[in-house]
């Protein structure tokens, strides 16, 4: 923009600022004007709130969000001492360890397949991507009330009937064996795979065609070899970003769990499939224990950070090619 413009001489005036600053002022003004609302909003509604939450987590804040009743680490001790909360952490860990690789593999597989299509690529790409535009709430309700409804007319039960299983199955309500996970996992896969497929597809299309040609010349004959030695390494940055997003999303799982499993007017469903966020939702907004709620939010945040750092360490996010070479 105006950064390259020569300094406009200002005759006299109250401006005592150095000439360089003065010359850049129009650019600065535009920069401030454009970013200030965003930064102010971010500070006010995110960072101040986060800071307040951190302070609150060291307070006995029941039915209030004002500070003043310091109770040290009590809230953290209460949470970590509650088997319901620790079980919810285990639940979300297992869920993450399952859903992340599965979504990753599915999204990458779909992207490779769609990319290889000669015709109709746009149709398939759109078809797989459309579920991303569906809200989690809507998806969850379709899954709960139509596909996996416990009535004989539910889609899953109709299928089971065709396969010779005559009893109606309460999919969501059955915890032993844990059939409810089928409902939860399939809805999430359906909702999120499309988005990551698009990311992978964009990554694949960035890979120069010459690389494949060169590889063929060098003797890579099978598709697998091409994938293994060209596509996969070239997609590394995309893969790392996708994994990162997947992990964060998995840890923050709430919407479909809440909408599929919550079944009582009071309380939020049973211990099975209770994620940390659902537990905390109940603690903070159901029981009005805002101190413990904030403490739990920081425990979950810490877990997400740890996982992200770990995966960054193993996958090498942000490492340059040079560092890689050493």
């Amino acid at each position: 923009m105006t950064t390259a413009a020569p300094a406009r001489p200002r005759a006299g005036g109250p401006h005592r600022a150095p000439a360089r600053w003065a010359s850049r002022w129009p650019a600065w003004r535009a920069f401030l004007l454009l970013t200030l609302p965003m930064v102010a909003g971010l500070l006010l509604f995110k960072y101040v709130a986060i800071g307040w939450g951190l302070l609150l987590s060291f307070n006995d804040a029941r039915g209030t969000i004002s500070l003043g009743s310091w109770n040290g680490l009590d809230n953290y001790r209460r949470l970590l001492g509650d088997p319901a909360f620790t079980r919810s952490l285990v639940t979300i860990l297992v869920f993450t360890l399952f859903i992340v690789p599965v979504t990753f593999a599915l999204a990458l597989g779909l992207a490779v397949l769609v990319n290889r299509l000669r015709g109709g690529r746009a149709i398939f790409r759109t078809t797989f991507f459309i579920p991303t535009a569906v809200s989690y709430v809507v998806g969850a309700l379709v899954w709960k009330m139509s596909l996996f409804s416990g009535t004989p007319s539910g889609v899953a039960n109709s299928l089971a009937y065709l396969l010779g299983y005559e009893d109606t199955i309460g999919w969501v309500a059955t915890v032993d064996p844990p059939l409810y996970w089928i409902v939860l996992v399939t809805v999430r896969l359906w909702l999120q795979t499309g988005l990551y497929m698009i990311l992978f597809l964009a990554g694949i299309q960035q890979i120069p065609a010459q690389l494949y040609e060169a590889a063929r010349v060098d003797g890579a004959h099978t598709e697998w070899q091409l994938f293994r030695h060209i596509t996969w390494p070239m997609l590394r940055n995309t893969s790392v970003a996708v994994t990162l997003l997947l992990i964060i999303n998995a840890f923050q799982a709430f919407d479909e769990f809440y909408n599929i499993l919550a079944s009582n007017l009071s309380g939020l469903g049973s211990a099975d499939g209770r994620t940390p966020l659902i537990y905390l939702f109940q603690t903070a907004l159901g029981e009005q224990n805002y101190g413990a709620g904030s403490a739990g939010a920081f425990i979950v945040t810490a877990l997400i950070v740890v996982f992200t750092l770990l995966q960054g360490r193993f996958a090498g996010f942000g490492r340059t090619g040079e560092e890689e070479g050493r």
């Binding site: 319901a84 059955t174 032993d176 049973s270 211990a271 109940q282 029981e287």
Partner: peptide, 20 residues
């Protein structure tokens, strides 16, 4: 019998009734 007090009980009921 607040939501907080009943939660351990509700979890116990599910475990007993549904999970032996």
């Amino acid at each position: 019998w607040t939501p907080e007090v009943r939660q351990p009980y509700d979890d116990a009921v599910t475990a007993i009734v549904k999970k032996d």
